[in-house]
């Protein structure tokens, strides 16, 4: 039997927040054809990951249930569902907006936090290491790529940008925020 959904749990301010993403309000056009979920490669592996259900929940304002679902982070953004939707629903773009609201509510995977911190520190999500430097030399390249890795001023620009947008505070270690 399904869990009972209480209308008292609906948070319309949350729905309004989701709808700030351009065209996110198109989720109201969904007529449950299930084209999105039936083609979803993640739903095939993990039935709990159900994009149609998630967007329906967003439309009902089911903020807590949605933001706390671990499956919010299973989408690989392959865009197959968005391509197939006959109603022009922006499935993936809307899901990313829901994720943003989860992040603003302090819900974040530790590994995502670490990747973000690497970009703040080094300007790359996957930075250079000694093994890669050797590999670069072996194929005839300079051991350091001509990116922020080589130009300190450029790294400074990236770090300043991430400070201005507040990204550095957003992904700071949990202990430091409390």
């Amino acid at each position: 039997m399904s869990d009972i959904i209480k209308t008292s749990d609906f948070d319309m301010e949350f729905r309004d927040e989701v709808f700030k993403e351009p065209d996110a309000d198109k989720i109201t056009l969904c007529f449950n054809c299930t084209g999105c979920t039936s083609g979803c490669p993640m739903a095939e592996l993990e039935p709990e990951y159900n994009i149609r259900k998630f967007l329906r929940m967003a439309n009902l304002g089911m903020k807590d249930a949605l933001l706390n679902s671990p499956y919010l982070w299973y989408c690989t953004t392959c865009y197959k569902c968005q391509e197939r939707c006959p109603q022009g629903v922006k499935n993936v773009d809307t899901l990313l907006k829901i994720r943003t609201i989860a992040i603003q509510n302090g819900i974040m995977h530790d590994n995502h936090r670490k990747v973000s911190q690497l970009v703040i520190k080094l300007g790359h999500a996957v930075p250079i290491n000694d093994e890669a430097k050797e590999k670069r030399k072996d194929v005839g390249l300079d051991d350091t790529p001509p990116t922020v890795h080589k130009f300190e001023d450029a790294l400074g620009e990236v770090q300043k940008l991430l400070k201005i947008t507040g990204f550095d505070k957003l992904v700071v270690d949990k202990e430091e925020t409390s």
Partner: peptide
Amino acid sequence: DLKGASCCPAPGVFRSFDKITWLSLASR
């Protein structure tokens, strides 16, 4: 060489986390 370029930034994390950060860094 596109000297001083950074991470694109990685759309899965950055676009999920904060659209303005993603857009600004990509635009840089």
